[in-house]
Write a protein that binds this DNA or RNA. Structure first.
Lengths: 143, 143
DNA sequence: TAAAATAAATTGCAATTTGCAAGTAAAAAT
DNA sequence: ATTTTTACTTGCAAATTGCAATTTATTTTA
């Protein structure tokens, strides 16, 4: 796997990986919606197609952003879990939340309220740490 | 212009706008590479095609993220400038920088160093404010 | 003032990506 | 043993992206 990068800019290079319709949505679903199996993702509100899902998961695994493992008691179900590299995307997800709450709400009439947005804004760093710790606590039994 | 949103999730809705290969690259070029005319963008390292550029700029203008104006002394050149809504994307750009520096550098051999990354990390909020103020200072003469 | 150059696009077409629907293979449940 | 479930894969249509050439309206230059 050799990834194609457009140029030497760090920001553009990040977007060569993250800049599409699905990658950060998948990360969000893992991080805060508890999704970890192929089926979990297909049942999401966003309704990703299975072929796209398979290709994005493979790509994220190759990049070291997620891992794919089998639980010892089940050979059918795969578990997709965020690595540290994937968890390090939490600040980006949080900033997307905040920007969206302030700037997209007016355009998407069905957007849901996030009651936690006030806490998120008042102490961003603690909120980010909390999300990461919660994720690790929930998933540590699978390692 | 009615934008299509996939669902009621704020993060997914942000990505319905920002989640593609070009939008955040264009914002970055405006914010920190001083690009403001159509020609400026076409001369970038990223080498965006003119048809894509035109369509993305139009879209960003319709969403209120940038404005398109003509300088009083020149009827040929248009100026594209970030609105407050666009400037509010600065934290996302900064987080992309940091994540990229730590997690993408290993994959993109030609990625340039950002000497300011240490400052960025040590005092994120000040850095964000500084970038926004610098942008406003540079562009205020066009309003 | 006519010709050349520049800025900001638009157009046609090819290539790539995305998305839908159906199908498959292996494992687990009944 | 049969059905159901999970995790895909495949084929094809639709949409998006990208390249190269062209266009129109300004400037600039000779």
């Amino acid at each position: 796997m050799d990834y194609k990068f457009r140029c030497e800019c760090p920001i553009t290079s990040a977007l060569d990986i993250l800049g599409d319709k699905w990658v950060l949505v998948i990360i969000k679903q893992m991080l805060i919606e508890d999704k970890k199996t192929f089926k979990d993702f297909t049942e999401s509100d966003e309704a990703i197609a299975t072929n796209i899902l398979a290709s994005k998961l493979k790509c994220l695994e190759e990049l070291g952003i997620i891992t794919k493992t089998q639980p010892p008691d089940n050979k059918k179900t795969n578990l997709y879990l965020l690595t540290e590299k994937g968890l390090a995307l939490t600040p980006i997800i949080v900033e997307l939340s905040i920007w969206s709450d302030e700037n997209v709400r007016g355009l998407n009439k069905i957007m849901r309220d996030s009651p936690e947005i006030a806490i998120m804004k008042s102490d961003k760093n603690s909120f980010i740490k909390m999300i990461i710790e919660a994720y690790k606590a929930k998933t540590e039994k699978f390692y």
